[in-house]
Computed example of a mutant assay.
Amino acid sequence: MNKPAPTIDNHSVMFITPRPELTMVEGNGSWLTDNNGKRYLDFLQGWAVNCLGHCNPGMIEALNTQAKKLINPSPAFYNEPMIRLSNLLTENSCFNKVFFANSGAEANEGAIKLARKWGQSNKAGAFEIITFDHSFHGRTLATMSASGKPGWDTMFAPQVPGFPKAELNDIASVKKLVTDKTVAVMIEPVQGEGGVIPSTKEFMQSLRQFTKENNILLIVDEVQAGCGRTGKLFAYQHYDIEPDIMTLGKGIGGGVPLAALMATDAVACFVPGDQGGTYNGNPLMTAVGASVIEQLLAPGFLESVRTKGELLSKELLSISAEFKLEGERGEGLLRALMLSSDIGAKLVELARDRNPEGLLINSPRPNLLRFMPALNVSEAEIRQMCNILRELLKQVS
């Protein structure tokens, strides 16, 4: 039996979201342990952040080794891990230049600035960026304005102007928004917060063709879908297209604060003074990022993500049929189970509070569950999660 833990004194932590009265103290692979000694099978992984699970040995070694050499020389200088990670990213993508940031929102903010800078020089000051309903690009004022999340247009009004909203997988809805002020289209290949909604290949190819024909940049926000999450190193590679700009976050750092803005040579038009950041590209974080990308590129790793994604999809479809739900969707190991009613929040609570071991899942919409396990999750852990889910669905039904 778990011993009761001391009362948590959390009075100094600013309230931004309801949190359960427990503290996570240890993690290993797909498992978290709280201050009561209770373990949780983690299919959240920090919202797709811990792509290699908790306390990955390669990441720990990279941190320890680099911390003994150099932590932060300032962004006024090159450092070796910054260069090594930049090369890894460009050698395995269609992009030529990389700017490192600390969060996906910051990378997306940089993408907006880069597109507008390019528009000043190449499109007579065009600045509008078409985004999509139900999209999520971050929590800065500009990225919230770019996002299509309901209610965000009034939360911190007035919004930053210049982000008309189209409908995902509807090329006509994009075309009708284009004016002489349009500089770019910004899209998540898989809308994560919107409910794990993949873009279709037909739509993405039509979008790329249309943007090229009209001298409009294509920006892919891969903060959630990138870095192996969909079974390829980058999600755009599923569509046989080459975007102009890509942003990465979450998985690129495997749990440390790291993000990236990538662009082709033709678009990388920043000049000194346009972009910067105190910690951006520091060797401690980029050394970890290099370890993450090297592990993702190891022979067979991405293939294993695709295989496990197929297993998770199959298991979720089986659950859907068994409980008369509405199916599943996603790509690789970013998947959602559509529920038949608004029981998502209840299932999340039951899963967390389950004994003797809990389960961590997410419900970005009331009628669906989202799954973002570590990319090296085992097949046994996938089956274990699905069996727990069956147990919970029986409780609520």
Rank of each mutant, 00 (worst) to 15 (best):
I112P: 06
I112K: 05
I112M: 09
I112R: 01
I112V: 15
I112H: 00
K113N: 15
K113D: 14
K113L: 15
A115W: 10
A115N: 07
R116V: 01
R116W: 08
K117E: 12
K117M: 13
K117F: 12
W118C: 06
W118P: 14
W118I: 06
G119E: 06
Q120M: 07
Q120S: 08
Q120N: 12
S121G: 13
S121Q: 14
S121Y: 14
S121F: 15
S121A: 13
N122K: 11
N122S: 11
N122R: 15
N122D: 04
A124R: 11
A124Q: 10
A124P: 04
A124I: 12
A124F: 13
G125D: 09
G125Y: 03
G125W: 08
G125R: 06
A126R: 08
A126Q: 07
F127R: 01
F127A: 08
F127C: 08
E128K: 12
E128N: 13
E128F: 07
I129P: 09
I129H: 06
I129S: 09
I130Q: 07
I130R: 05
I130G: 10
T131R: 08
T131K: 07
F132R: 03
F132S: 05
D133L: 12
D133T: 14
D133P: 00
D133W: 00
D133F: 00
H134G: 02
H134T: 14
H134K: 10
H134A: 03
S135K: 02
F136S: 13
F136V: 01
H137C: 01
H137S: 00
H137R: 02
H137Y: 15
H137L: 06
G138S: 11
G138F: 09
R139N: 03
R139G: 02
R139Q: 13
L141K: 14
A142N: 10
A142G: 05
A142I: 02
T143Y: 03
T143V: 14
S145I: 05
S145D: 00
S145W: 03
S145T: 00
S145H: 10
A146Q: 02
A146R: 00
S147R: 09
S147Y: 05
S147W: 03
G148C: 09
G148I: 02
K149Q: 04
K149E: 06
K149S: 01
P150L: 04
P150G: 04
P150W: 11
P150E: 07
G151P: 14
G151M: 12
D153L: 10
D153M: 05
D153T: 15
